[in-house]
């Protein structure tokens, strides 16, 4: 860009595998670790964690894009907003039935793991506990997806 547009903030969404989005937008709302925050041009520099949730991209007062992210980090400077996402997909690509199925699978695994954690000790116990934490994270992501879907339907 030869001349940065003064009234737009450059929004970038990056996953480890590729650059997903890079465009000037009016405003983005990011689900920060300590609450959602909106980014307009001239925002104070900020680095924040991102919790699983939906990023809303605004043109004027209209939401033009809704993207689900499974967590990550956001870096905001006065003219730029960069989100480093673990996993990102448009909200419209989420499918309730498949998430429900996934969630049930995870919960089943979590139950067995919890049982294992309670019964075993030593290294086996630690392994099961670590796996349980990982599974619980995925369950949280699934729940966030479902929540995002139900909110999306209400819009």
């Amino acid at each position: 860009m030869a001349e940065p547009r003064a009234d737009k903030v450059q929004f970038e969404l990056v996953s480890p595998e590729k650059l997903l989005l890079s465009e000037p937008v009016d405003m983005v709302v990011v689900p920060g670790g300590e609450g959602n925050f909106g980014v307009l041009i001239g925002h104070a520099p900020l680095i924040s964690t991102v919790r699983p949730g939906v990023i809303d991209v605004y043109e004027g007062t209209k939401i033009t894009e809704r993207i689900f992210v499974a967590g990550g980090f956001a870096e905001v400077t006065p003219e730029r907003c960069t989100v480093l996402a673990d996993e990102a997909m448009p909200l419209s690509d989420l499918d309730k039935a498949s998430i429900d199925g996934e969630l049930r699978g995870f919960e089943g695994t979590a139950a067995t793991l919890r049982d294992q954690v309670a019964r075993t000790s030593g290294s086996e116990h630690d392994e099961a506990a670590a796996e349980l934490v990982a599974i619980e994270k995925r369950i949280a992501v699934c729940n966030a997806k479902l929540q995002a879907l139900s909110q999306g339907a209400a819009h």
Binding site: G33, P45, L46, I47, S48, T49, F73, T77, P78
Partner: peptide
């Protein structure tokens, strides 16, 4: 400019 951190630096670093 100096960044604000949310939550604080060490917690972000811990994850980052």
């Amino acid at each position: 400019a100096v960044y604000e951190f949310e939550p604080d630096e060490s917690e972000i670093l811990e994850e980052l």
